[in-house]
């Protein structure tokens, strides 16, 4: 999937540095700050193989907020092939950036709201342009399992109820601006309660469309559906996100689907964020 990147993206890779990162402040600029996430193991609701309970996640860096409309607009300005009036429909459906004022302008109130109505292709292209990538599901789930105080808060009833409370809020309400929810254990904002987020390995998220057929897991496709044990109620909150992702195809867009980028740890690790204790 990722090899379809449009020709101009490669050429523009170097244009987007991360000035905000260099400044070392929380000023929202071309790209969100990134937080270094230490390596670790955790029990995923989507185990990597039958019988394997835990997933090992290598250290990586993750945007501390979702990408905003303003950040995405700068990307579109540099890569006009991703304007809503120019993008081929195979890469983004009719809803792509349909909430913007025009193909190149956003409404003033949208600046710091997370960008939505973006396809997986568009989100991937943005991250690539930053020299980054979308997080994998396991990376995303690993960081999102944290509560404010614990690396794995999933057994905390309040953690779960907070997430379910967001699900039960209508999507008709305006989106909040990014960075306003409390940071989690790793120092990351907005993993819950703001938007859905694309992940890199979307094609692997094709959980059976009818999740009750647990006897016939045919994959993550191999292990996904079989692993979705309804008895583990703490998984409900996560499960709903998987359901949402698995309903989306890579050119789909939605009013509540945004994204953030991740990066591998390069040789230079100058910005390691200490986990909050």
């Amino acid at each position: 999937m990722r090899s379809i990147a449009l020709p101009s993206i490669a050429a523009s890779l170097l244009l987007l540095g991360s000035p905000a990162e260099a400044a070392g402040t929380h000023v929202v600029s071309d790209a969100p700050l990134q937080i270094t996430i230490p390596a670790g193991e955790f029990a995923s609701v989507l185990p990597p193989a039958p019988g394997v309970k835990t997933v090992r996640v290598a250290a990586f860096r993750l945007d501390h907020t979702p990408v905003t409309n303003e950040q995405f607009a700068r990307f579109v300005a540099r890569h006009p092939e991703w304007r809503r009036d120019r993008v081929p429909r195979v890469f983004a459906d009719d809803g792509y950036l349909s909430h913007w004022k025009s193909a190149t302008e956003i409404e003033p109130g949208q600046r710091n709201q997370p960008v939505v109505h973006v396809s997986w292709f568009a989100a991937s292209a943005y991250c690539e342009a930053r020299g980054a990538r979308l997080p994998t599901w396991h990376e995303w789930e690993y960081v999102a399992a944290a509560s404010a105080t614990e690396p794995d808060g999933r057994k905390d009833e309040q953690w779960r109820q907070n997430i379910l409370a967001w699900y039960s809020k209508s999507a008709r309400q305006p989106l909040p601006v990014v960075g306003k929810t409390p940071v989690n254990y790793y120092g990351v904002h907005d993993l819950h309660g703001v938007v859905w987020e694309w992940v890199d390995d979307l094609s692997a998220m094709l959980v059976s469309n009818d999740n009750r057929q647990q006897s016939e897991p045919d994959t993550l496709r191999y292990c996904g559906p079989g692993a979705l044990s309804m008895e583990e109620k703490e998984n409900y909150a996560t499960l709903m996100r998987i359901a949402m992702l698995s309903s989306m195809q890579a050119n789909y867009t939605s009013k509540t689907m945004g994204f953030r980028c991740a990066s591998d740890l390069g040789p230079k690790q100058e910005r390691i964020h200490e986990p909050l204790r």
Partner: peptide, 9 residues
């Protein structure tokens, strides 16, 4: 169910 699984919009 499987034939009608539909994303928002």
């Amino acid at each position: 169910a499987a034939s009608s699984f539909t994303a928002p919009g």
